[in-house]
Write a protein that binds this DNA or RNA. Sequence first.
DNA 1: CGCGGCGTTTGATCTGGGTCATGGCGGCGG
DNA 2: CCGCCGCCATGACCCAGATCAAACGCCGCG
Lengths: 250, 250
Amino acid sequence: MSRPVFPYADASTLADDGDLLRFCSTCAFSLACRAEGLDKQELLDLHMLVEHVGPFAAGDHVFREGEPFDAIAAVRAGTVKTYVVERDGQEHVLGFYLPGEVIGLDAIDGMRYPCNAVALDTVSLCRFSFPRLAELATRLPGLQQHLFRLMSRDIGKAMRLAGDWSADQRVAAFLLGLSRRLSARGYSSRRFQLTMARTDIGNYLRLAPETVSRVLKRFQDDGLIAVDRRDVELTSVAALEALAAPIRGN
Amino acid sequence: MSRPVFPYADASTLADDGDLLRFCSTCAFSLACRAEGLDKQELLDLHMLVEHVGPFAAGDHVFREGEPFDAIAAVRAGTVKTYVVERDGQEHVLGFYLPGEVIGLDAIDGMRYPCNAVALDTVSLCRFSFPRLAELATRLPGLQQHLFRLMSRDIGKAMRLAGDWSADQRVAAFLLGLSRRLSARGYSSRRFQLTMARTDIGNYLRLAPETVSRVLKRFQDDGLIAVDRRDVELTSVAALEALAAPIRGN
DNA sequence: CGCGGCGTTTGATCTGGGTCATGGCGGCGG
DNA sequence: CCGCCGCCATGACCCAGATCAAACGCCGCG
């Protein structure tokens, strides 16, 4: 989490709202805050405390379990995986974070990162010092509200994953979740790459990697998807949604 | 959530810190804020927006899924269960909330309660209007920080429950979690009552109620606990902790 | 171009816990 | 005091998915 840093020293030179919007879109986090009603000056204040860090190469760690917490980060590009290692050496994947999503929120309580975060491909981040962000949030109610929403959303998401769903339901919900999240960031919702290994998917969904393979194979045989290695195409979103329906959201 | 209301109209009459502490202890929420560094005046501000609601009788609903969200609540006495009902009628327990714990945080994102909350015994609550609480939090950094921590903690808790633990591990962690949370509020950590039915425990831990029964029986045969109907005594905390170790926290 | 390793696929077998069925027990109302 | 009803316990059986085992590509490297 300490890397080449490119703070927005020139933030005050923006000319008009068009500039501002383009400026914001480099970091999804502030875009979301814009939706919460922050005005131009407030967004500039927010951007003054962003550090762009990265790129991280696949396999690089963004932070490690136990390190002191000082910042949350929004993914700007790439995929981040968070995980813990059980005492028996078993890896336990907590989440995958795509562009626009925020990592580190679970570290606020405890003031240490409770898990490891690793880049799955080439990753760039927007880093926000949390003390400074919290301080700013006392002056910008929209920012505070955005933080509350983000955290509230993560609570709901984690609770949903905890259900006792079947392997089919889990995999279908996982694929649809990726699809939805990618399309929200402008990528195709039908075709995309799995940036993570089958083993990672299994460790995330609490399934053996063999089971993930088998389910994907069966989905393909049944015409729900087309898989080739890490490339996926959803060929029957409706059927997937029927399977995943009970796990709303994700 | 609309019930007899007893706002703290007389908050400003407190004489000294002893009074204040006793005053705070009626609501664990503000006690925790006190630890975050709120001073006397700030605590009084906080108390001005508390509403004591209840009592609710066993089976009464505190709120229902889909209702508009306007307030979070700290449990003052009793146990609250939150749950959702799947489309197939299956009940899915999301959590049990003991005195001092806060319900409704998962409703901030979405502005509607995403689940039902029901009293398992006689329940009293401290209700905090969320818009007013958020507004106050912009003026009291310690309060904001406390809210961030609470939500961060819930994220971690939900993620831990999502692991693929064995029935023994789940039940052991559940018992220890209750023990720890109860003792934090001054109750015995060795002997306590299960305020929820076996079915509820199963729906929370993703186990069939029969499995809960069997595991409790085996724990008793192995000398880890003594169970009689809803009364439990932990007779070998060490052994339980060895089982539950991987599920740290709870 | 051949080699080696890892991620993945596929098949065979095993098992933890779910499901179904039955029976006991304690509490409450009549 | 009796009988009903909901919760709990216990046994028999079954199945989804884990585990074990083996072979197959894809890819980087010498």
